[in-house]
Design a binder for these strands. Structure first.
Lengths: 205, 205
DNA sequence: TTGAATATACCGAACGAACGGTAAAAACAA
DNA sequence: TTGTTTTTACCGTTCGTTCGGTATATTCAA
């Protein structure tokens, strides 16, 4: 009777024998790929099940909350991954240039060099009416922008321009991924990554 | 038995009495709003019909090709609108700064000050596997980037940096709209528009 | 160390609802 | 009339979801 908690926690599963049939993290990753490719509506249970290598009913054993819980847990896992691999390095004590280099490398892996879309984009609804994941998405964007702004402040920018630069970098990231999907190339994303360091750090005090 | 042509043409409907029951352009606009809000999969015939103020079967009378034709014609209409209201002014003889001002104004209207998402983003599929509208979307992006680059060349930039700046502006536009949807605000888009002129023209030769 | 009892992981088959789509007739215009 | 537009009613399919059940572990009493 674990797995009942859909929340972000994911930690409190102690003193429970792991039963390795299909690893949870791997499962979430496979589902995540589908959501990133097709979006929420486009990700049917059929393709989700096929991607997971399970039957639909089996997915419901792991996610009693159904499709929405799947997306929610995928989103939470992505949030955790971002926090660990992107936000933490950004807030480290290393010199800003080095932090940005790490950021570039991590982003490249996270988005498979531009081949994979951003979950936050694919799961977000219209700005007028908020969807089921509005809160999480908003929080994730805010966290990324804030962490990037911290690194930029450490690089010598004042709070205001650090914030502006940070937000612009996230916009460029998202925009490059949109362009990749639209143009059928990964070039925009790769170009973005190449220019990101000077985009962030050029012209600092 | 008009409307058979699903293509981009939309022009060859001469010598046919227009029969104003519900205006075609207005209809396409309403459908377009749905596609921009929900994406292709999310836009069910039920909500499309409701938005159009028609029954499903009535929609099929106008779009024998079904949902795909609806999206295709909406996309073609958007392409035409972009060509007229955005590309043409960008290629005009007016001074670059003025062209950019017009661009800002048109973009603001086109995206309802950030309240409406971009059709090109909402209709594009994964970069790995191309969807039904891949060609049109790619063409639209390329046209916008090219037209913007023309204006930037006229502003004194060399071909290479004009191209880079143009592409970056489109990325910022798309990214700002993604951020608007994700954060539930129109502020990123409005900020983008405010900064767009100097983003485009600052530092020119 | 057994053997029953209990959990866990998975699956085949089916559910009602909603999907995209169609046929035929009513309503309306010319 | 004739032809177009809209509607009501329906089709087959797929949707997300649930049920009943099987196989494999794990637990625990004897």
């Amino acid at each position: 009777m674990r797995r009942r908690v859909a929340g972000v926690g994911a930690g409190v599963e102690m003193h429970m024998a792991r039963r390795a049939t299909i690893d949870d993290a791997r499962l979430l990753e496979k589902l995540g790929c589908v959501f990133r490719e097709c979006g929420y509506e486009g990700a049917s249970l059929a393709v989700l099940a096929k991607a997971a290598g399970l039957q639909k009913a089996s997915l419901y054993h792991r996610f009693p909350g159904g499709k929405e819980q799947m997306a929610r847990e995928v989103l939470a896992a992505a949030e955790a991954l971002i926090a660990r691999d992107i936000l933490m390095p950004l807030k480290s004590k290393a010199p800003p240039a080095e932090r940005v280099d790490i950021l570039v490398r991590q982003l490249n892996g996270f988005y498979s060099a531009g081949r994979q879309a951003c979950l936050l984009n694919m799961l977000s609804a219209a700005p007028t009416q908020e969807g089921p994941f509005a809160k999480e998405i908003k929080r994730a964007f805010a966290a990324i922008i804030a962490a990037l702004a911290v690194a930029l402040r450490d690089a010598g920018f004042d709070a205001r321009s650090a914030r502006v630069r940070s937000e612009r970098a996230v916009m460029l990231l998202q925009g490059s991924l949109v362009l990749c999907r639209g143009m059928g190339t990964t070039r925009p994303f790769r170009d973005f990554l190449k220019r990101l360091p000077q985009e962030l750090l050029a012209g600092r005090a």
